[in-house]
């Protein structure tokens, strides 16, 4: 019984979420012109579909399910599961956590450190987190890699990569001058 409830829970949560958004759509429904469908029509139609699907799933799970659904093949996106079954791979939840934290830190510091510094740091730390420790390769590939990105995206095609602030900005501007970008 508890496992059955557990299976229902995500669908119930989705149902509630959808219901809330349906209610929230009222805030912009007022923009509609008389006699025409408003901007709320489409999202609400999608939400109704979502709620119907969730409702059906909840009913199905409560009435018929015997816990087989979880292992149904999930074809075109998941890794083929025979791989999963034959080779139970070591999992590194901690490294995954560090990887996510690194990515967040990268976005946070990009504006301050500027693209070049932040990227070089990110690349190097990411490689180390991924269990690659040959320091010379890490250092070289991350610095040269970021330089290549700066060159391509500032000189060849212009993308407004952040320059950073304070001393980092000075470094970025100097780097641009060095690469002949003016």
């Amino acid at each position: 019984m508890p496992s059955r409830l557990k299976g229902v829970l995500p669908y119930a949560a989705l149902f509630v979420g959808a219901a809330y958004l349906f209610y929230d759509a009222a805030t912009f429904a007022a923009a509609a012109r008389p006699g025409q469908l408003g901007p709320d029509f489409w999202p609400r139609a999608v939400l109704v579909l979502l709620m119907i699907v969730c409702g059906c799933e909840i009913l199905r799970k409560l009435l018929f399910d015997r816990g087989v659904d979880a292992v149904v093949a999930d074809a075109p996106h998941a890794t083929p599961h025979d791989e999963e079954a034959s080779a139970p791979e070591p999992r590194f939840p901690l490294r995954l956590g560090v990887g996510i934290a690194l990515s967040i830190a990268y976005v946070l510091t990009l504006d301050v450190l500027g693209f070049f510094v932040a990227t070089a740091l990110y690349l190097a730390l990411f490689m180390v987190t991924g269990r690659y420790y040959r320091s010379r390769v890490v250092l070289l590939s991350s610095v040269l890699g970021s330089l290549a990105f700066v060159f391509v995206f500032m000189k060849v095609v212009y993308v407004s990569l952040p320059l950073g602030v304070g001393p980092f900005k000075v470094l970025s501007v100097w780097l641009l001058a060095l690469l002949g970008i003016r």
């Binding site: 989705l14 959808a18 958004l21 759509a25 912009f28 923009a31 509609a32 408003g38 901007p39 709320d40 489409w42 999202p43 999608v46 939400l47 579909l49 979502l50 699907v53 969730c54 059906c56 799933e57 199905r60 659904d69 149904v72 093949a73 999930d74 074809a75 075109p76 996106h77 998941a78």
Partner: peptide, 30 residues
């Protein structure tokens, strides 16, 4: 793949994500 329900739910999530922001017809924030 196996589950039509999951596919539909995932699709609806995608469709809803697409509606976030300024709408094309009325120009209101959603």
């Amino acid at each position: 793949g196996g589950s039509l329900a999951k596919a539909l739910i995932s699709l609806c999530i995608g469709l809803m994500l697409a509606t976030v922001g300024v709408d094309d017809t009325y120009g209101v924030d959603r």
